[in-house]
Design a protein around this nucleic acid. Structure first.
Lengths: 262, 262
DNA sequence: AGGCTCCTTCCGTCAGGCGGAAGGGGAGCC
DNA sequence: GGCTCCCCTTCCGCCTGACGGAAGGAGCCT
């Protein structure tokens, strides 16, 4: 979607309000989960740039290593960018600290295990351990979902500041299945429940055959940092049983991050 | 190091030959393993930019999400960049495919397990599984080392095209310990040995207490893609024993990537 | 061959990036 | 308190280098 405002009338071409830096970032932004490999023309179209401009920017990015070009002339995200992005404190660094505990959780359940952080009113998945026999889930590493629908999102929202909660509760809540909670009052009760029990449950809110049980992870000083979850088939979901296991893993990670129980 | 050429003489300021795009990328490049958190001034210094220019660029990057700024005003790599970089085919995508086999290798050995790819004449580490009791290694995810010294580097070099081998063999070989192989003829023999046995051994070439045993990973069509290694204490190193295990893991990953034994 | 799409190079114009200057704000020191 | 130092932010005029139209090349399909 959003090929918008390409329409130019008689006027002498509306001057692009974007800075050169914005345009470069828009080239990077042209790549996403569904567009991991793009031709030059596709980059130009998705970034809303003239072909020549895209050509120049893509050349610069490729020379630096932010993009790579294969024999067919198709561009992908390059290793050098990956390398730099590996320094993100909420990415690789968090993941490395959490990994052993995620492994333990996987060993104990043999189900999909997730680690995610909050960005605005979305969750971003940092890591996923996929059981071979586990339920098919729609979340990939790097994927984004709204806070209110996923297990990890509910866990994060339940422990978030009041104004963020109000922001989410005040906006329309997108539905992904018939089970997705779109009623603010019901969402409020879910969050209260999550705070009371220490784990959040998302029942078939993303796909209609998966239930997710999640718990929040805190850093040094008690700041909310991330959330962990286990995703299981809806029919054999035992939140009461999984909750404690997820909580244990979450506390383990919190401890590794320097969190101290009060 | 490298505060170089800040010296301006009487002249009216040498015009920076870098493009706006280059300068933006140099801001990102200012962040590395040893500089994961930088103030605005530090960014300007490391990127070789005026403070005002850095200020503007860093603002744009932060607005986009490529950088994040904490309360103290210190900048770090942001989640959005991490998200985009997660699309790198030789990064997260490769890692996800390899992970189960790396786990198996870790279970079998309980030593540090590495996955790395080649970039130019360097290796870049994509993943590391650290045993709690394993030997301390100097490689982090996202780290870079020259091909000739690490186990994974030797495995990659042994199966690389002839001209790359000649390029490495023709250049000076940096030493990191007294054991680092800096003689081209000896390196040539190591590579031949690696091809013969199917695994490469780096004996105390990076740190003087660690031995690395590595094997190459191939993709669909037989293209060289990556290398896997196990790093153990020098005293209890049994390359003959580890070699086969590493080879099995490497072939497993290769198979997962669509490689077919001929 | 012809027509198509996608890519690359060239070059003149003018908008927008650059950086000097000035001022705010906080930490540390006397 | 008053001082200094350092880091950050905003403002604004000049000049440069980014932009994009135009033209042409390279494949690919019919």
């Amino acid at each position: 979607m959003a090929t918008a405002d390409q329409g130019r009338r008689g006027g002498p071409a509306a001057p692009d309000p974007r800075s050169a830096a914005d345009r470069l970032l828009d080239v990077l932004g042209a790549f996403d989960q569904d567009n991991q490999a793009l031709t030059l023309t596709a980059v130009a179209r998705r970034a809303g740039l003239r072909l020549t401009t895209a050509h120049r920017l893509v050349g610069t990015l490729t020379r630096w290593g932010a993009l790579e070009r294969d024999q067919a002339g198709v561009y992908r995200i390059g290793l050098r960018l990956w390398e730099t992005a590996a320094l993100a404190p909420r990415g690789v660094v968090l993941r490395q600290a959490a990994m052993p505990y995620l492994e333990d959780l996987y060993e104990a359940t043999h189900e999909n295990v997730h680690l995610a952080v909050r960005d605005g009113t979305d969750v971003v998945y940092i890591e996923r351990i996929s059981g071979r026999s586990a339920v098919g889930v729609r979340s990939q590493v790097g994927a984004r979902w709204p806070l209110h629908a996923t297990g990890v999102g509910l866990a994060l929202l339940a422990h978030a500041e009041a104004d963020l909660q109000e922001q989410v509760l005040g906006a329309p809540l997108a539905a992904f299945t018939p089970y997705t909670v779109t009623d603010p009052a019901r969402l409020r009760r879910l969050l209260a429940e999550a705070r009371r029990t220490g784990y959040a449950v998302s029942d078939r809110q993303i796909t209609d055959d998966a239930v997710s049980v999640a718990a929040a992870v805190f850093g040094a000083g008690g700041a909310l940092v991330a959330a962990v979850s286990v995703v299981v088939h809806a029919e054999d979901a035992h939140p009461r049983q999984l909750g404690p296991a997820v909580r244990v893993a979450a506390r383990g990670i919190s401890r590794a991050l320097g969190w101290q129980p009060r």
